[in-house]
């Protein structure tokens, strides 16, 4: 499955939710789709699932436009943050309905997962807790066997144990039935090692798209005496800088280049930390 995004923009009431976003992703792969609140993640995922029309540009899957294209959309399972099920239906009915819409629906897996997440199939969606609805969404996502499976914040209301079950399932499924998983989440530290590729959105724009492998050399933290650090990062783009007692930490885009200098140390930046730095950078820009 190949997703091709070309110059996609989305306007909401004259405001840009997405600005000229372009990229290509190809599966099977587990992809982390990150960014802080309001960065445009959900808007993009809605576009990808054909739920809303783009203002400009197009999204193609295997060369075909996704909007109003049931033949393509049949291969996509989109588990949104909420509103995935009909309130008046029971869990069993929801799962039965899914059978009609996902051609590769795995009934056996669905039943197994019902037990794993301890759901009662006779319960109505209306009466479920947040965590239970999330679990039902997770079951739908995995049992759909859809070539492109999108989870947007899939575990609201789930505890650590249940989230762990989700990660285990994700790896299991990726080994047994590889597909393109797109996972958008706030709990980056927990999930960061699951990603093979990372996309980060910021203020409606694609900030970066890297494989986990490229990641370590792409963004680094340079630490040391302030003057030494300044000298080492002279011609690099800085994301974040912090000085404490003459010691400086500078997070920079190394973009694969080796950073050299006297008395400095280089450290990897975790995804979680990067997002913190990015939001600090954004705030500074707003203050200016």
């Amino acid at each position: 499955m190949k997703i091709d995004v070309r110059n996609v923009s989305k306007l909401y009431k004259q405001k840009h939710a997405l600005k000229n976003v372009s990229f290509t992703i190809e599966g099977p792969k587990i992809i982390g789709f990150l960014g802080h609140n309001g960065a445009g993640k959900t808007t993009f995922l809605n576009l990808l699932a054909g739920l809303i029309p783009a203002t400009e540009g197009h999204i193609r899957i295997n060369g075909e436009n996704v909007f109003n294209a049931p033949a393509i959309l049949r291969n996509i399972c989109f588990v949104a943050e909420s509103g995935n099920f009909q309130e008046d239906m029971t869990i069993a009915q929801c799962l039965k309905a899914n059978r009609f819409f996902y051609p590769k629906w795995d009934e056996q897996l669905a039943n197994e997962l019902l037990q794993v997440f301890a759901l009662n199939p006779k319960d109505k969606v209306r009466n479920l807790s947040k965590g239970m609805v999330s679990a039902l969404g997770i079951i739908t996502g995995f049992a759909s066997h859809a070539a492109i499976t999108i989870f947007d914040e899939p575990y609201i209301g789930l505890d650590v144990a249940a989230r762990n079950t989700f990660y285990d399932l994700l790896i299991d499924q990726q080994i047994e039935h590889p597909r393109l998983f797109l996972l958008s989440t706030h709990l980056i530290d927990e999930a960061s090692e699951l990603f093979e590729e990372i996309l980060i959105l910021q203020e409606g724009e694609l900030l970066l798209q890297k494989t986990a492998e490229q990641w370590d050399q792409y963004i680094v933290a340079v630490k040391g005496n302030a003057q030494d650090v300044e000298r080492a990062i002279l011609d690099l783009e800085v994301i974040y800088k912090h000085i404490f007692m003459h010691d400086m930490t500078a997070v920079v885009y190394a973009k694969g280049r080796a950073i050299e200098g006297e008395n400095i140390t280089l450290e990897n930046v975790s995804l979680q930390d990067l997002l913190v730095y990015l939001s600090k950078q954004q705030k500074e820009r707003l203050v200016k």
């Binding site: 792969k29 587990i30 762990n164 990660y167 285990d168 790896i171 299991d172 990726q174 080994i175 090692e193 699951l194 990603f195 093979e196 986990a212 492998e213």
Partner: peptide, 17 residues
């Protein structure tokens, strides 16, 4: 590779590397 991936909850491709 897959056993490593499951054990450490990491991407199978990373474990493979």
């Amino acid at each position: 590779t897959n056993e490593f991936a499951k054990e450490y909850q990491i991407n199978p491709a990373t474990a493979g590397k």
